[in-house]
Nucleic acid binder design. Sequence first.
DNA 1: GCTAATATTAACTCTATGTTAAGTCAATAT
DNA 2: ATATTGACTTAACATAGAGTTAATATTAGC
Lengths: 226, 226
Amino acid sequence: MASHKILLVDDDEDILDLLEYNLSKEGYLVETAMNGKLAVQKADSFVPDLIIMDVMMPEMDGIEACAEIRQNPKLANSIITFLTARSEDYSQIAGFDAGADDYITKPIKPKVLFSKIKGLLRRNSTQESAVQGSSSMFVDREKYVVMQNEVEISLPKKEFELLALLMSRPNNVFTREKIFASVWGEDIVVGDRTIDVHIRKLREKIGEDYIKTVKGVGYKFVDVEG
Amino acid sequence: MASHKILLVDDDEDILDLLEYNLSKEGYLVETAMNGKLAVQKADSFVPDLIIMDVMMPEMDGIEACAEIRQNPKLANSIITFLTARSEDYSQIAGFDAGADDYITKPIKPKVLFSKIKGLLRRNSTQESAVQGSSSMFVDREKYVVMQNEVEISLPKKEFELLALLMSRPNNVFTREKIFASVWGEDIVVGDRTIDVHIRKLREKIGEDYIKTVKGVGYKFVDVEG
DNA sequence: GCTAATATTAACTCTATGTTAAGTCAATAT
DNA sequence: ATATTGACTTAACATAGAGTTAATATTAGC
């Protein structure tokens, strides 16, 4: 298996160096960022499997960065772990709300960190590796366009992000909750029918059969034979 | 969604009571054990999603119990979390080595505990979830389908949850009460025949032989040779 | 063979989702 | 500055089909 990619985010360069050194030695591909803003950018290009991020940072704090990263459908499979001082209970809770998967307490004990990372990545890797997109359709984020049998379909932002999210894991059901969290953001509230309308428009544009409703659960993208 | 199952392990009855009360109130299915040895047994029959276990216990300590539980393939998907006094770093490390996934520090802050549990369980149900149970059939919660000999069977929500519950412990009889509690929720009341009808529909879809009626007791899922 | 528990079927209800059209807003063009 | 356009949301109503009920038949266990 290709090495796992880890993105480290902390404003303390010493910590970054220490962790980068040790994790690289363990065989991970490591990149770093010094604040939340850079982290969001780097995450988008690097597409890490795991993001380890300090909560307190200048420019943009971890919570905010986490929320932004969770918007990015490309990063739906990335695990986000916070670094927090031992008793910052507030940030722990806020972190989970923002979409974090776990947190690690400071001071960091390398052994604890390593076994934790191993555990987290093990979880994630069982699913992975299966397919990437589907045969007759794929998402081109650069051109911001969806290719369907050699034909470019250009979509408005919300429709694009929604379709990209669904296509990030074909056959996987995404609950309305998750769709909202990912495409709109945890805190934005929109009406109940908004998703339906976007789904309708997508179905009009790409065909009726690609997006399947799982009533009471959510929606999923299924690839149809073209 | 069917409730998550949590196994609490601690030698302090007060803590057990407190946690059990609060977690039950949150909608979890909770069972308890007073020492590591009992925990291992109970885990085997109960198959909890999450085990919260004190490190220091008589009879068999948490580390040892954790190691034993990790041997049990049925419990591959169970998350194990330790309860530790704030600075027992030794036990944290030993705990991770033994296969624990996380730890919670005492004294326990309910708010922290709940968000942590939510986070852990969410991680468990989004990331892994696949596989479970028997050879010729398994539940894939991510795709929200049941795989039967390479064939996807998609089911409506209630039927899916019901089958998933029965399959979570093949050969184990689930009483009607437990099925109601788990699939419908403690407070929702529906007629007596509702379960039967769902069972009927399931049998139509997956075959007559998988779900066996135990008259006067309940239903169980048995794996048949395919 | 009786009896209570479960099976079966079809009809019914109700809720989640589908659909359409109109409204709001921001970006761009005139 | 004003008009235009299209993305996005909302609201109102329609619909499907999941879920439930009720009535009747069947079965297992005593």
